[in-house]
Computed example of a mutant assay.
Amino acid sequence: MTTEMTQVTVEELATLMKKAAGVTVDPHDLERRVDTPFAEFGLDSLGLLGIVGELENRHGRALPTDAERCKSPRQFLDLVNGAFTTGA
């Protein structure tokens, strides 16, 4: 496993939404609507928890507990990528 952490992209988030929560979102639409609440994409808190778990497994580290309470893609990506950058 590499020690370098990469940023989670909008495209990766769209893939994770499909894999972990069964919600299909076009990555370009997600990027255009990055401040739209997850609920408007059909993603609930349980789905977001699945995404958090998938990222934790991929990167071998826990994410902040606030990650599963994020309301929008931008808020989620900012929190997750900030945690990976700082090692928090």
Rank of each mutant, 00 (worst) to 15 (best):
M1Q: 06
M1E: 08
T3I: 09
E4C: 12
E4M: 14
M5R: 15
T6I: 11
T6V: 10
Q7R: 14
Q7G: 07
V8S: 00
V8I: 14
T9L: 01
T9D: 00
V10S: 07
E11A: 08
E11W: 10
E11H: 15
L13D: 02
L13W: 10
A14D: 02
A14T: 06
A14V: 09
T15W: 08
L16D: 10
L16A: 11
M17V: 06
A20L: 04
A21D: 04
A21M: 09
V23P: 13
V23T: 08
T24M: 00
V25E: 01
D26R: 01
P27T: 07
H28W: 10
H28C: 04
D29L: 12
D29G: 04
R32P: 05
R32G: 07
R33C: 01
R33W: 07
V34T: 12
V34I: 15
V34P: 08
T36P: 04
P37M: 02
P37Q: 11
P37C: 04
P37I: 03
F38R: 05
F38C: 11
A39H: 01
E40A: 11
E40Y: 14
F41E: 00
L43P: 00
D44L: 09
D44I: 05
D44R: 06
S45W: 02
S45H: 01
L49K: 14
I51S: 05
I51H: 13
I51C: 13
V52D: 04
V52Q: 12
V52Y: 09
L55H: 11
N57G: 08
N57R: 15
R58E: 02
H59D: 00
H59R: 03
H59I: 02
G60H: 09
G60V: 10
G60E: 05
A62T: 15
L63H: 11
L63P: 10
L63G: 06
L63V: 10
P64H: 05
P64L: 02
T65V: 12
E68T: 14
E68L: 15
R69D: 07
C70T: 13
C70Y: 03
K71E: 05
S72K: 12
R74V: 13
R74F: 08
Q75E: 14
F76Q: 01
F76D: 00
L77P: 13
D78G: 10
D78A: 15
V80C: 03
V80Y: 08
G82H: 06
F84M: 09
F84V: 08
T85N: 10
T85H: 12
T86I: 06
T86D: 00
T86N: 04
A88F: 05
